[in-house]
Protein backbone atom coordinates (compact mmCIF):
# COMPACT_ATOMS: atom_id res chain seq x y z
CA UNK A 1 0.00 0.00 0.00
CA UNK A 2 2.78 2.38 0.92
CA UNK A 3 4.57 1.56 -2.31
CA UNK A 4 1.35 2.20 -4.23
CA UNK A 5 0.90 5.56 -2.47
CA UNK A 6 4.41 6.57 -3.37
CA UNK A 7 3.83 5.75 -7.01
CA UNK A 8 0.60 7.74 -7.11
CA UNK A 9 2.24 10.75 -5.50
CA UNK A 10 5.04 10.63 -8.02
CA UNK A 11 2.58 10.11 -10.85
CA UNK A 12 0.65 13.30 -10.08
CA UNK A 13 3.79 15.36 -9.58
CA UNK A 14 5.70 13.98 -12.55
CA UNK A 15 4.19 16.13 -15.35
CA UNK A 16 5.02 19.41 -13.59
CA UNK A 17 8.41 18.07 -12.56
CA UNK A 18 9.28 16.91 -16.07
CA UNK A 19 8.19 20.26 -17.50
CA UNK A 20 10.32 22.19 -15.02
CA UNK A 21 13.33 19.93 -15.58
CA UNK A 22 13.06 20.00 -19.38
CA UNK A 23 12.23 23.64 -19.95
CA UNK A 24 13.80 25.36 -16.96
CA UNK A 25 16.54 23.33 -15.28
CA UNK A 26 18.08 21.85 -18.44
CA UNK A 27 18.17 25.18 -20.36
CA UNK A 28 19.63 26.80 -17.28
CA UNK A 29 22.42 24.21 -17.10
CA UNK A 30 23.08 24.61 -20.83
CA UNK A 31 23.30 28.36 -20.28
CA UNK A 32 25.90 27.83 -17.54
CA UNK A 33 27.89 25.57 -19.87
CA UNK A 34 27.49 28.15 -22.62
CA UNK A 35 29.02 30.84 -20.41
CA UNK A 36 32.22 28.78 -20.31
CA UNK A 37 32.25 28.17 -24.06
CA UNK A 38 34.13 30.23 -26.59
CA UNK A 39 33.15 31.77 -29.86
CA UNK A 40 35.82 31.66 -32.54
CA UNK A 41 34.54 33.39 -35.59
CA UNK A 42 31.13 31.83 -35.89
CA UNK A 43 31.96 28.42 -34.46
CA UNK A 44 31.21 27.55 -30.91
CA UNK A 45 33.87 25.75 -28.92
CA UNK A 46 32.59 24.06 -25.78
CA UNK A 47 34.89 23.60 -22.86
CA UNK A 48 35.84 25.25 -19.63
CA UNK A 49 37.13 28.65 -20.65
CA UNK A 50 37.02 31.68 -18.41
CA UNK A 51 37.44 34.08 -21.33
CA UNK A 52 33.89 35.46 -21.13
CA UNK A 53 34.14 36.25 -17.45
CA UNK A 54 37.58 37.77 -17.93
CA UNK A 55 36.15 39.90 -20.71
CA UNK A 56 33.32 41.04 -18.41
CA UNK A 57 35.80 42.03 -15.73
CA UNK A 58 38.20 43.85 -18.03
CA UNK A 59 36.20 45.51 -20.80
CA UNK A 60 35.29 48.95 -19.40
CA UNK A 61 31.87 49.16 -21.11
CA UNK A 62 30.87 45.74 -19.80
CA UNK A 63 32.07 46.48 -16.29
CA UNK A 64 30.31 49.82 -16.49
CA UNK A 65 27.00 48.05 -17.21
CA UNK A 66 27.38 46.03 -14.01
CA UNK A 67 27.97 49.22 -12.03
CA UNK A 68 25.11 51.09 -13.73
CA UNK A 69 22.68 48.20 -13.09
CA UNK A 70 23.63 47.99 -9.43
CA UNK A 71 23.40 51.76 -8.94
CA UNK A 72 19.97 51.96 -10.57
CA UNK A 73 18.72 48.91 -8.67
CA UNK A 74 19.85 50.24 -5.29
CA UNK A 75 18.44 53.73 -5.90
CA UNK A 76 15.14 52.29 -7.11
CA UNK A 77 14.80 49.80 -4.25
CA UNK A 78 15.58 52.39 -1.60
CA UNK A 79 13.37 55.13 -3.06
CA UNK A 80 10.47 52.74 -3.64
CA UNK A 81 10.54 51.52 -0.02
CA UNK A 82 10.68 55.09 1.30
CA UNK A 83 7.78 56.21 -0.91
CA UNK A 84 5.63 53.09 -0.53
CA UNK A 85 5.84 52.74 3.25
CA UNK A 86 3.80 55.87 4.11
CA UNK A 87 1.24 54.97 1.45
CA UNK A 88 0.83 51.44 2.84
CA UNK A 89 0.70 52.78 6.40
CA UNK A 90 -1.93 55.41 5.54
CA UNK A 91 -4.09 52.78 3.84
CA UNK A 92 -3.66 50.33 6.72
CA UNK A 93 -4.11 52.77 9.64
CA UNK A 94 -5.98 55.85 8.39
CA UNK A 95 -8.41 54.62 5.76
CA UNK A 96 -11.65 53.23 7.27
CA UNK A 97 -11.67 49.43 7.36
CA UNK A 98 -14.34 48.79 4.75
CA UNK A 99 -12.67 51.15 2.26
CA UNK A 100 -9.18 49.70 2.64
CA UNK A 101 -9.45 46.90 0.11
CA UNK A 102 -10.91 49.24 -2.47
CA UNK A 103 -8.27 51.95 -1.96
CA UNK A 104 -5.51 49.33 -2.13
CA UNK A 105 -6.97 47.84 -5.31
CA UNK A 106 -7.12 51.33 -6.82
CA UNK A 107 -3.54 52.12 -5.73
CA UNK A 108 -2.11 49.09 -7.50
CA UNK A 109 -4.39 48.93 -10.55
CA UNK A 110 -1.82 50.44 -12.98
CA UNK A 111 0.52 47.67 -11.80
CA UNK A 112 -1.32 45.47 -14.27
CA UNK A 113 -0.45 47.56 -17.31
CA UNK A 114 1.95 45.80 -19.63
CA UNK A 115 5.47 47.00 -18.83
CA UNK A 116 6.13 47.99 -22.42
CA UNK A 117 3.05 50.22 -22.31
CA UNK A 118 3.94 51.61 -18.89
CA UNK A 119 7.40 52.66 -20.04
CA UNK A 120 5.94 54.18 -23.19
CA UNK A 121 3.46 56.15 -21.06
CA UNK A 122 6.34 57.61 -19.04
CA UNK A 123 8.06 58.50 -22.28
CA UNK A 124 4.94 60.51 -23.19
CA UNK A 125 4.98 62.28 -19.82
CA UNK A 126 8.71 63.06 -19.86
CA UNK A 127 9.27 63.72 -23.59
CA UNK A 128 10.69 67.02 -24.84
CA UNK A 129 7.21 68.14 -25.91
CA UNK A 130 5.61 66.11 -23.12
CA UNK A 131 3.28 67.08 -20.32
CA UNK A 132 5.89 67.87 -17.67
CA UNK A 133 7.97 70.12 -19.91
CA UNK A 134 4.90 71.92 -21.30
CA UNK A 135 3.52 72.49 -17.81
CA UNK A 136 6.82 73.82 -16.50
CA UNK A 137 7.09 76.17 -19.48
CA UNK A 138 3.50 77.35 -19.07
CA UNK A 139 3.96 78.25 -15.41
CA UNK A 140 7.20 79.98 -16.32
CA UNK A 141 9.59 77.79 -14.33
CA UNK A 142 11.72 77.04 -17.38
CA UNK A 143 12.09 78.74 -20.74
CA UNK A 144 13.37 75.82 -22.80
CA UNK A 145 12.33 72.18 -22.53
CA UNK A 146 14.71 70.20 -20.31
CA UNK A 147 15.90 66.68 -21.07
CA UNK A 148 13.92 64.30 -18.89
CA UNK A 149 13.39 61.31 -21.17
CA UNK A 150 16.27 59.16 -22.44
CA UNK A 151 18.16 59.52 -19.20
CA UNK A 152 18.81 57.65 -16.01
CA UNK A 153 16.25 59.91 -14.34
CA UNK A 154 13.56 58.57 -16.67
CA UNK A 155 14.56 54.94 -16.12
CA UNK A 156 14.54 55.39 -12.35
CA UNK A 157 11.17 57.19 -12.45
CA UNK A 158 9.60 54.43 -14.53
CA UNK A 159 10.97 51.77 -12.20
CA UNK A 160 9.91 53.57 -9.01
CA UNK A 161 6.38 53.97 -10.38
CA UNK A 162 6.11 50.21 -10.82
CA UNK A 163 7.78 49.13 -7.60
CA UNK A 164 5.98 51.61 -5.35
CA UNK A 165 2.82 49.70 -6.22
CA UNK A 166 4.43 46.31 -5.58
CA UNK A 167 5.89 47.43 -2.25
CA UNK A 168 2.67 49.09 -1.14
CA UNK A 169 1.04 45.69 -1.56
CA UNK A 170 3.64 43.68 0.40
CA UNK A 171 4.02 46.28 3.18
CA UNK A 172 0.26 46.73 3.52
CA UNK A 173 -0.24 42.96 3.73
CA UNK A 174 2.26 42.92 6.58
CA UNK A 175 0.87 45.97 8.43
CA UNK A 176 -2.75 44.80 8.55
CA UNK A 177 -1.66 41.56 10.18
CA UNK A 178 -0.26 43.47 13.17
CA UNK A 179 -2.57 43.48 16.13
CA UNK A 180 -3.50 47.03 17.25
CA UNK A 181 -2.69 45.84 20.77
CA UNK A 182 1.03 46.37 20.14
CA UNK A 183 0.44 50.03 19.46
CA UNK A 184 -1.93 50.43 22.38
CA UNK A 185 0.48 48.72 24.76
CA UNK A 186 3.36 50.93 23.62
CA UNK A 187 1.19 54.02 24.08
CA UNK A 188 0.15 52.91 27.57
CA UNK A 189 3.81 52.53 28.41
CA UNK A 190 4.33 56.16 27.43
CA UNK A 191 5.77 55.94 23.92
CA UNK A 192 5.04 58.84 21.58
CA UNK A 193 3.99 58.33 17.96
CA UNK A 194 7.53 58.40 16.62
CA UNK A 195 8.76 55.96 19.26
CA UNK A 196 5.88 53.60 18.51
CA UNK A 197 6.80 53.68 14.84
CA UNK A 198 10.53 53.34 15.41
CA UNK A 199 10.49 50.62 18.07
CA UNK A 200 7.23 48.74 17.47
CA UNK A 201 5.71 49.10 14.00
CA UNK A 202 8.90 49.30 11.94
CA UNK A 203 10.58 46.17 13.37
CA UNK A 204 7.34 44.21 13.05
CA UNK A 205 6.84 45.27 9.44
CA UNK A 206 10.38 44.32 8.42
CA UNK A 207 9.28 41.05 6.75
CA UNK A 208 6.92 42.98 4.44
CA UNK A 209 9.60 45.54 3.61
CA UNK A 210 12.31 42.96 2.96
CA UNK A 211 10.06 40.70 0.88
CA UNK A 212 9.00 43.64 -1.29
CA UNK A 213 12.54 45.01 -1.51
CA UNK A 214 13.87 41.62 -2.57
CA UNK A 215 11.26 41.27 -5.30
CA UNK A 216 12.07 44.82 -6.39
CA UNK A 217 15.77 44.00 -6.55
CA UNK A 218 15.20 40.83 -8.58
CA UNK A 219 12.76 42.36 -11.06
CA UNK A 220 14.67 45.64 -11.39
CA UNK A 221 18.12 44.19 -12.03
CA UNK A 222 16.71 41.79 -14.64
CA UNK A 223 14.51 44.21 -16.58
CA UNK A 224 15.44 45.05 -20.14
CA UNK A 225 12.38 47.01 -21.24
CA UNK A 226 12.38 50.03 -18.91
CA UNK A 227 16.01 51.12 -19.43
CA UNK A 228 15.78 50.34 -23.14
CA UNK A 229 12.72 52.56 -23.68
CA UNK A 230 13.43 55.30 -21.14
CA UNK A 231 17.17 55.24 -20.61
CA UNK A 232 18.63 56.41 -23.90
CA UNK A 233 21.98 55.31 -25.23
CA UNK A 234 24.38 56.94 -22.80
CA UNK A 235 24.58 54.03 -20.43
CA UNK A 236 23.56 50.40 -20.71
CA UNK A 237 22.40 48.01 -18.00
CA UNK A 238 23.26 44.31 -17.74
CA UNK A 239 20.07 43.06 -19.43
CA UNK A 240 20.68 45.51 -22.27
CA UNK A 241 24.19 44.10 -22.73
CA UNK A 242 22.73 40.58 -22.82
CA UNK A 243 20.33 41.63 -25.56
CA UNK A 244 23.02 43.48 -27.53
CA UNK A 245 25.22 40.37 -27.48
CA UNK A 246 22.32 38.20 -28.62
CA UNK A 247 21.16 40.50 -31.35
CA UNK A 248 24.02 42.21 -33.05
CA UNK A 249 26.74 39.62 -32.64
CA UNK A 250 24.89 36.42 -31.70
CA UNK A 251 27.53 36.05 -28.99
CA UNK A 252 25.63 33.55 -26.85
CA UNK A 253 28.63 32.73 -24.59
CA UNK A 254 29.16 36.34 -23.51
CA UNK A 255 25.39 36.92 -23.11
CA UNK A 256 25.21 33.80 -20.93
CA UNK A 257 28.13 34.92 -18.78
CA UNK A 258 26.47 38.30 -18.23
CA UNK A 259 23.22 36.52 -17.30
CA UNK A 260 25.10 34.34 -14.81
CA UNK A 261 26.64 37.44 -13.22
CA UNK A 262 23.14 38.90 -12.94
CA UNK A 263 22.00 35.68 -11.25
CA UNK A 264 24.96 35.97 -8.88
CA UNK A 265 23.76 39.36 -7.64
CA UNK A 266 20.23 38.02 -7.17
CA UNK A 267 21.58 35.09 -5.16
CA UNK A 268 23.65 37.47 -3.03
CA UNK A 269 20.56 39.59 -2.41
CA UNK A 270 18.62 36.48 -1.46
CA UNK A 271 21.27 35.38 1.02
CA UNK A 272 21.44 38.89 2.48
CA UNK A 273 17.73 38.99 3.28
CA UNK A 274 16.85 35.29 3.66
CA UNK A 275 16.34 35.83 7.39
CA UNK A 276 13.33 38.08 6.89
CA UNK A 277 12.00 36.78 3.60
CA UNK A 278 8.44 35.50 3.66
CA UNK A 279 7.97 34.53 0.03
CA UNK A 280 5.58 31.76 1.03
CA UNK A 281 3.21 34.24 2.64
CA UNK A 282 2.70 36.43 -0.38
Amino acid sequence: MIGHEKKLGWGFTAPALVWTLAFFVAPFLVMIAMSFANLEGRTLIWGFHLDNYIELATRPYLLRAVVVSLQITFIVTLASVVLAYPLAAIIAFRVPQHWQRFVLLLAILPFWTSYVIRSYAWLLVLAREGLVNQTLINVGMIAEPITLANSRFATVTGFIHFFVMLLTLTIYANLVQLSPNYRLAARDLGANTFQIFRHVILPLSLPGIVTGAFLTFVLCIGDYVTPQILGGNNELTMPQIVMVQLGRRADFPLASAMAIVMMGFVTAAYLACARWLRLDRL
Binding site: T20, F23, F24, V25, P27, F28, V30, M31, M34, V218, L219, I221, G222, D223, Y224, P239, V242, M243, L246, F252, A255, S256, A259, M262, M263, V266, Y270, L279
Partner: peptide, 16 residues
Amino acid sequence: APLTVSYLIVGLGLLI
Protein backbone atom coordinates in the same frame (compact mmCIF):
# COMPACT_ATOMS: atom_id res chain seq x y z
CA ALA B 1 12.48 27.87 -8.34
CA PRO B 2 11.65 29.59 -11.68
CA LEU B 3 10.00 32.40 -9.67
CA THR B 4 13.37 33.60 -8.43
CA VAL B 5 14.94 33.83 -11.87
CA SER B 6 14.32 36.81 -14.11
CA TYR B 7 12.26 36.27 -17.25
CA LEU B 8 15.22 37.28 -19.40
CA ILE B 9 17.22 34.31 -18.11
CA VAL B 10 14.33 31.86 -18.59
CA GLY B 11 13.97 33.12 -22.16
CA LEU B 12 17.70 33.10 -22.85
CA GLY B 13 18.10 29.50 -21.63
CA LEU B 14 15.25 28.28 -23.81
CA LEU B 15 16.52 30.27 -26.79
CA ILE B 16 19.97 28.68 -26.51
